[in-house]
Each structure stands twice: as structure tokens, then as C-alpha cells.
Amino acid sequence: MNHDYLDPINSLHMPELADTTFAMDLLLRAKEGVRNIAVALTESASPDVRNLLRNQLMQGIAMHQEIKELMINKKWFHPYELSEQYKLDQLSANNTLMIGKMNLFPVDTNRKGMFDRTPDDH
């Protein structure tokens, strides 16, 4: 491991690493969505709003299940073998910590001046 993001050694197994992160993000968002809709349901009074939310809740639960099954099939998620899961957790935490230490965006990122007029105004 090193701090140079241009070093090719850091791209080893990159697709796997990236996809586990994205899939985990998708899973957490699906989970959060189910919880949010359930909370909203406990506050909603209009029958048609309740109906809409209830359908979306069931759809959200199904989507969450589908993402979880995909992750289990791809061996990105191990709810039944906690030590396997533990290894993945630690690995991705370490990896992301390493990325956190990199200087990824060395140039100024303020691009605001480019968006204050339409092309015709130039």
C-alpha cells in the first residue's frame, strides 16, 4: 500500500473493490428507504397517501431483498458467516482509509465562474 494514486499497484482488484462499495451503498440506501417510508406511514392520515406509501414500502422491501441476494451470490456480503463478513469489513475500511489519505484533487476545484451565464452570453 502507498499513497500515490497513480501507482498501478493500487488498481489491483479495483473492479471488485469498487463494486462492493457501490453495492453496499445501494443496500444501505434501500434499508434507509424502507425505514423512512415506515416512519412516514406512521404519520400519514390521508387514505390515498397511505396507500401510495404502503405500496412503495413493499416495493422497497423487495428491492432490499434483491440487492442483498445479489451481494450474497457475488460473495460481497456474508450475513451467515460473521468471520467472513468481518474480514470484508476490515479490508474495505482499511482500503478506504488509504484512499482518504491520498491527495486526489490537487488542483483548485472552484469551477463556479463557468456556470454564471449561458453560452450565448460569452
Binding site: 473492479p15 463494486d19 457501490f22 453495492a23 445501494l26 428491492m63 440487492i67 457475488k74
Partner: peptide, 16 residues
């Protein structure tokens, strides 16, 4: 994120 994923199944699920 669909522009960033590698795995086809994951991409399909994201599209869904």
C-alpha cells in the same frame, strides 16, 4: 453510479 460499476448484474439492478 451506473457509470462507475463493473459488474453487469449490479448495473442491471441499479437500472431497475
Amino acid at each position: 453510479m451506473q457509470g462507475l460499476v463493473f459488474d453487469h448484474d449490479l448495473r442491471a439492478l441499479m437500472q431497475k
